[in-house]
Amino acid sequence: MTHSSTDPKTTSTTNSSIVFDHVTKLYPGQNAPALDSLDIEVKSGELVCLVGPSGGGKTTALQLVNRLVDLSSGDIRIGDRSIMDIPAIELRRTIGYAIQQSGLFPHYTVAENIAIVPNILKWDKSRTTRRTVELLELVGLTPVDSWLGRYPSQLSGGQQQRVGIARALAADPPVMLMDEPFGALDPITRMAVQDEFLEIHRAVGKTTLFVTHDIDEAIKMADRIAILKPGGKLAQYDTPAEVLTHPADEFVAEFLGAERGLKRLALTTVAEVLVAKAEPERPAESDLPKVEADVTLREALSVVSAAGAHGARVMERGSHLGDVTLHDLVDPPANAVDARNGEGVGL
């Protein structure tokens, strides 16, 4: 057991893709399937969001993967192995699982909660302790010593969710399943935990299947989005930008909502537009409103609109990077948007 085996940054070099192969789930006593012949592939290291209205079968799809729900037909493969070839209990111990309300054991301390899977896998104590400390640092609960002994009731919702994520990562599973993990958080905490989780995801590179009913969360988090419609049929499976620009059908367009265009602008930052623009223009006007380089076009547009201006001055740590025009914001150069699109795979 080398140190590297407990390093949170260990990225599995083996294939940990999740393949849904004509997956259908028909619950007993119901005449319509909850999930109808789902065919998607989540590539190794990718974060895929399953979205859709309730009754779309997204949670069913997730629970089929760790066999909390049994397949009716079709197959699911993790790596190249069918989940049906692995005993359910053994399978679950190799899959990180985080759910809404965190599902933390209220009678276990933070340290004990994180150690649940390591303990049933019979890791030795020092390895488990080392891992627990690493994970708490990873999710930003520092100084670690002040968190180890607390009970979940002593944590805020956001802190509980962070512990839930640490617990799901405990045994370094190649695959993570997350079922509306941030659903119960207030909007501000939710944004913060989303950002942290994205950072963690980029650092650890786990193949992640993420269920949410919140399309904005999906747009923000996902490399690709699978939109399910009632009856468990896949409506569209594509990158956030592609889904927003070219919704596959009426249902998807409606699900994305009237602000679809604005949501698309939220995918790109002004810095990306500046990079994409061949030669930075420097208009003479100096009364342009200032925006930070890492804000999205949507936010920049809001700033520009509020100031009644026709462009914005892009700043980074106090220095002037360049200016963007109203036209840049509303219709960003295609390569700025593409830069974001390609980023997802192979983190």
């Binding site: 679950r92 899959i95 759910i99 965190s102 899977v117 617990r167």
Partner: peptide
């Protein structure tokens, strides 16, 4: 709580572990 049981099963606790480690306490 249902979510506690679901996460316990999802993490790979067997029925006896679920009873002894979660439900009875």
């Amino acid at each position: 709580p249902e979510d506690v049981k679901r996460s316990a099963i999802g993490m790979g606790l067997n029925q006896r572990q679920l009873m002894v480690k979660v439900e009875l306490p």
